[in-house]
Computed example of a mutant assay.
Amino acid sequence: MPQGTQTPPQDPIHQHDRGLPQLLAIMRRLRDPETGCPWDVEQTFATIAPYTIEEAYEVADAIERNAMDELQGELGDLLLQVVFHAQIAEEAGHFSFVDVADEVATKMISRHPHVFGDESRDKSADQQTRDWEKVKAAERAAKGATGVLDDVAVGLPALLRALKLQKRAARVGFDWPSTDQVLAKIQEEAAELVEARDTLGPDEIEEEMGDLLFVMANLSRHMGVDPEAALRRANAKFTRRFGAIETALKQRGKTPEQSNLEEMDALWDAAKAAEKAAKRAATAPPADPGTKA
């Protein structure tokens, strides 16, 4: 080191206790009006909310892809969103991060008396679910939410909210007894959508499409299928098969724009057949080593 030079002082944040204490300290520094980051200082609950939703989806995406090497970072990004909102709230005098943690801890203890209280753990999963709902109903009543659907968050993705509304209504007996009635309702709603397409305007078409999607979510619930997971799977399948179309066209010296529907449809069918054949081969029982080919 040249004579007369000095090592720049290291920021105290580097000596802070690691983990959550350091993260909370970082956010306080970022939000400091005098010395913080101008972008972070300007943020509000509303401007940060879209990032919170995005980070939650990225966590779900990493789990869906079984990308454990990415999940740690994505969970950290989601935790940062909680810390960010809590810091904004503390500055406004609403609550702190400790208050957030205390409230959810109290809630978990209250909702698990068979673990943290004197209730027996010797009960079925169905009974535990019913007990859980009783506790949550009492919590809703304490908040003044007396209606069955009062506290189903409006800001949820529409498909998820539809599922939650249906589950909540089903708990009080407002539900079809079997999938037969749900399937009949789908046929009814599909017919009404066709009628709207042929005789009505865009607003009515949108309404009927919403009704059909709502019943489809209900069918998923009745059949024990997570509609979000099912749709993600269908999206992945479409992406995979369309990629096969692009690959086949490239081998022919073409792009999709240079092709036509008939050719691409035939390539789609070929990709579909290849996937099914591969799936059958993967699930077929192993050949008896004593037999000859």
Rank of each mutant, 00 (worst) to 15 (best):
P2D: 13
Q6K: 11
I13A: 00
H14G: 01
Q15N: 09
D17K: 04
R18C: 08
I26L: 09
L30P: 01
D32R: 00
D32F: 10
P33E: 14
E34V: 02
T35S: 14
G36I: 06
G36S: 15
P38E: 12
D40C: 05
V41M: 08
V41C: 13
T44V: 09
T44D: 05
F45A: 03
T47L: 09
I48E: 09
P50A: 10
E54F: 00
E55F: 05
E64I: 07
L71Q: 10
Q72M: 11
G73Q: 13
E74D: 03
Q87I: 00
Q87P: 04
S96G: 04
F97G: 03
V98N: 01
V100I: 10
T106S: 07
K107W: 07
S110D: 10
H114Y: 08
H114D: 05
D118M: 00
E119S: 08
R121K: 15
S124I: 02
A125N: 04
T129P: 03
A138H: 09
D150R: 08
A153V: 02
V154I: 11
L156T: 08
A158V: 13
A158G: 13
L160I: 06
L163M: 11
K164C: 15
L165P: 05
R168Y: 07
A169L: 14
A170S: 04
W176Y: 13
S178N: 05
D180W: 13
V182R: 12
K185L: 14
I186R: 07
A190E: 07
A191I: 01
E192N: 06
A196I: 02
D198Q: 12
L200V: 07
P202D: 06
I205W: 01
E208N: 08
M209R: 09
D211E: 10
D211L: 08
V215T: 06
V215A: 13
A217T: 06
L219V: 04
S220V: 13
R221H: 15
H222T: 15
M223T: 11
P227W: 04
T239P: 02
R240I: 04
R241N: 12
R252F: 14
S259M: 07
S259E: 02
N260Q: 00
L261V: 01
E262D: 13
E263I: 02
K272G: 11
A274W: 06
A287R: 11
A287C: 06
T291L: 13
K292E: 05
